[in-house]
Design a binder for these strands. Structure first.
Length: 285
DNA sequence: ATACGAGTCCGTCATCCCCA
DNA sequence: TGGGGATGACGGACTCGTAT
């Protein structure tokens, strides 16, 4: 797998691994979390052992610097020891309220990874066939939140903005986009400038021409109409993608917050259990 | 200084899925 | 059932930290 392809693979599995983290994090053991993810991933990647096995675990304490790799040996339940390369994902400074919790993304390198990587890149269509679409993260979160009270649902835009939890930092989303005389779209705020490939027919956001199909005569007009529709669709999709990513970030923050809460709960329960054990156990001396 | 790896962001395409 | 919004997946550009 190419460098970029592997990177995408890691990104692709982030959500899945996050869910596994939540399921397994009550144990509190890094090794077990990795092992569970390992086995789960092996099931989903049958026949594709050239793809690195991935896991995401939550660890307490500080990690290394941003983007700095760390190599760890992890023992699986089967007794097999794997090399784990971990990279600290530094959260936004104002995002995580519990500084002890950091998300670590780990990738175990399967033995056949090197050889498979040298075989070349699968074309994108084949990859699309291999990588089946997973359920929407919004759906997952909503299912989660229906099970567990206290987990906010990702709802429609309005309620989401109004009901943002106080510990989650909202991101600035620029909305003012206009067309310059050169066909260049510029956004106010922090969005970078970008260019439309065929600016001749591009329209500002929200502008819909009232050209009905019956009013089009020449093939040129039809082509222009098609181009215009395409530009409009691309523009809408561009904005939708931005919004989608913003919501996804919020979703990830929500999961991270939930992990932090559950870890605290788990710790308290363990302490409580120890206390009760001390009370109930007969004194030996 | 520079090469390199890893992470992030963005635009686009393909597909899912809801609603009129 | 078609249209359109939502989102997974992909690839490219860019940034940043580290090693040399």
């Amino acid at each position: 797998m190419s460098k970029c392809g592997r990177k995408k693979y890691i990104k692709t599995n982030l959500r899945q691994m996050t869910m596994e983290t939540i399921e397994s994090q009550q144990d509190g053991s890094v090794t077990d979390s990795v092992a569970e993810s390992e086995s789960a991933h092996m099931q989903t990647q049958t026949g594709q052992n050239s793809i690195p096995t991935l896991a995401q675990v939550s660890v307490a304490g500080s990690g290394t610097g941003r983007g700095s790799p760390a190599v760890t040996l992890v023992q699986l339940p089967s007794g097999q020891t794997v090399h784990v390369q971990g990279v600290i994902q530094t959260p936004q400074p104002s995002v995580i309220q519990s500084p002890q919790i950091q998300t670590v993304q780990v990738a175990t390198i399967a033995e056949t990874d090197e050889s498979a990587e040298s075989e070349g890149v699968i074309d994108s269509h084949k990859r699309r066939e291999i990588l089946s679409r997973r359920p929407s993260y919004r759906k997952i979160l909503n299912e989660l939140s229906s099970d567990v009270p206290g987990v906010p649902k990702i709802e429609e835009e309005k309620s989401e903005e109004e009901g943002t939890p106080p510990n989650i930092a909202t991101m600035a989303v620029p909305t003012s986009i206009y067309q310059t005389s050169t066909g260049q779209y510029t956004a106010t705020g922090d969005m970078p400038t970008y260019q439309i490939r065929a600016p001749t027919t591009a329209l500002p956001q929200g502008v819909v021409m009232a050209a009905s199909p019956g009013s089009l005569h020449s093939p040129q007009q039809l082509a222009e109409e098609a181009t215009r529709k395409r530009e409009l669709r691309l523009m809408k999709n561009r904005e939708a993608a931005k919004e989608c990513r913003r919501r996804k970030k919020e979703y990830v923050k929500c999961l991270e917050s939930r992990v932090a809460v559950l870890e605290v709960q788990n710790k308290k329960l363990i302490e409580e259990l120890e206390t009760l054990k001390d009370i109930c156990s007969p004194k030996t001396d």
